[in-house]
């Protein structure tokens, strides 16, 4: 994990090329910033890289040591874990290396400043719940949404999606219109891979192209007509010529009624 590189970072030497841009500090210079210098000095070998954008310092940390580094920063005054967010970089332009990143935003009341720690991972990240209690739900949410496994978390279970949901919605390969659900919790109703059927088509929801009008309006399906008020009887087949002449006017009257209502 330690040899990974952040995506498409411009080399520090290229930055001063644009004269109008503010000077970009190199990684070593950022690490010496008074905000983070003390904490970085105590965990120097775990800090792999540093970047700065719009005045926010981001330190890239060795994934295996993130819990220790967080403890170091907490002891140094960054007592408040503001936010913990996972990102799926699999569709990021020119990205190579691990798929996920987790960003920890820390805040120090004494310095009135934030710093962001980031790790790269393909699945497992040590949990920081032992460092901050508030990390518990943040990590559960990140696990739920992205499927990142926080090792050492006391109860890593879904928090926003329901138990038994099959998938992680914020992964880039998860379709925005959703997936076939139901198979896990009601296997007797929805067989594995079956899922709810889309309206009148009888096809699984994900196989229906809504934009081509494949899924007709609900009203066209027989089930939607139940309890839908007085509905005309379905059009009867034309009376056969062999029928007795006497009931014919009655049938005609019924047909007329049906047409009026329709």
């Amino acid at each position: 994990m330690s040899e990974t590189t952040p995506p498409s970072t411009p080399p520090p030497s290229a930055a001063p090329a644009a004269p109008t841009a503010p000077p970009v500090r190199g990684a070593d210079e950022i690490k010496r910033d008074p905000l983070v210098a003390a904490a970085v000095a105590r965990a120097a070998d775990a800090v792999l890289d540093a970047r700065e954008l719009v005045g926010e310092i981001t330190l890239f940390i060795d994934t295996a040591r993130i819990a220790d580094v967080c403890r170091t920063f907490k002891d140094d005054g960054f007592v408040y874990l503001v936010d913990l967010a996972g990102v799926d970089y699999s569709k990021f332009p020119n990205h190579t290396g691990p798929r996920f990143s987790v960003a920890y935003t820390l805040y120090s009341f004494r310095r009135n400043a934030r710093v962001r720690l980031r790790v790269w991972t393909d699945g497992d990240v040590p949990s920081v719940t032992a460092v901050w209690k508030t990390a518990n739900w943040h990590e559960r949410e990140t696990f739920d949404m992205l499927g990142i496994n926080f090792t050492g978390h006391p109860n890593l279970e879904r928090i926003l999606m329901w138990d038994g949901f099959n998938g992680h919605p914020l992964r880039k390969d998860f379709p925005i219109r959703g997936i076939d659900t139901g198979a896990r919790i009601y296997p007797e109703v929805f067989p594995e891979g079956g899922g709810p059927k889309a309206g009148s088509t009888g096809k699984p929801v994900n196989d229906v192209n809504l934009y081509k009008g494949e899924w007709k309006a609900y009203g066209s399906s027989p089930a939607a007509q139940i309890g839908g008020g007085a509905k005309p009887a379905p059009p009867k087949p034309a009376p056969k010529p062999v029928a007795a002449p006497a009931p014919a006017p009655v049938a005609a009257a019924a047909d007329d009624d049906a047409e009026e209502e329709a």
Partner: peptide, 14 residues
């Protein structure tokens, strides 16, 4: 590419 929201209610409810 990604927009994460840090909602105060979510954290406070914890």
């Amino acid at each position: 590419y990604r927009c994460h929201v840090r909602p105060p209610s979510f954290v406070n409810l914890q």
